[in-house]
Computed example of a mutant assay.
Amino acid sequence: MPDNDDHGRHRTQLHPAVEPRLGLRERKKIKTRMAIREATYRLVQEQGYDATTIEQIAEAAEVSPSTVFRYFPTKEDIVVTDEYDPILEEELRARPADEPLLTSLRHVVRHAVERSMSDEFETREEMELRGRLMVEVPAVRSRMIESMSVTGRMMCRVVAERTGRDPDDLEVRVYCMGIVGALMEASRYWAEHGQRGDIGEYAERALEVLEQGLARRDSEAP
Rank of each mutant, 00 (worst) to 15 (best):
P2Y: 08
D5V: 08
D6Q: 15
T12P: 12
L14E: 04
R21H: 12
R21Y: 14
E26S: 11
R27Y: 07
I30F: 04
M34C: 02
A35T: 01
R37H: 09
Y41F: 15
L43M: 15
L43E: 11
V44H: 14
Q45H: 14
E46G: 01
Y49W: 14
Q56M: 11
A58W: 05
A58C: 09
A60G: 02
A61M: 05
S66H: 02
S66Y: 03
Y71T: 05
I78L: 01
V79M: 15
Y84G: 10
Y84E: 14
D85W: 05
I87S: 03
L88W: 14
E89P: 06
L92D: 10
L92S: 15
A94K: 08
A97P: 04
D98W: 00
P100T: 04
L102K: 15
T103I: 07
S104W: 13
S104F: 10
R106D: 07
V109S: 12
R110S: 07
A112I: 13
E114W: 03
S118G: 07
F121M: 08
F121S: 03
T123I: 07
M127D: 13
M127G: 13
M127K: 08
E128G: 05
M134F: 15
P138S: 15
I145H: 12
S147H: 12
S149D: 10
V150N: 07
V150G: 00
G152S: 11
R153I: 10
C156L: 00
V158H: 13
V159K: 01
V159F: 04
T163N: 15
G164R: 06
G164D: 04
R165K: 12
P167D: 08
D169E: 07
E171S: 05
V172M: 12
Y175T: 05
C176N: 08
C176T: 12
M177R: 05
G181I: 03
E185H: 14
A186V: 03
S187K: 01
W190C: 06
G194N: 01
G194S: 02
Q195K: 03
Q195I: 04
D198M: 01
G200F: 01
E201V: 00
E208S: 10
E208H: 06
L210Q: 04
Q212G: 15
A215G: 15
R216I: 12
R217C: 09
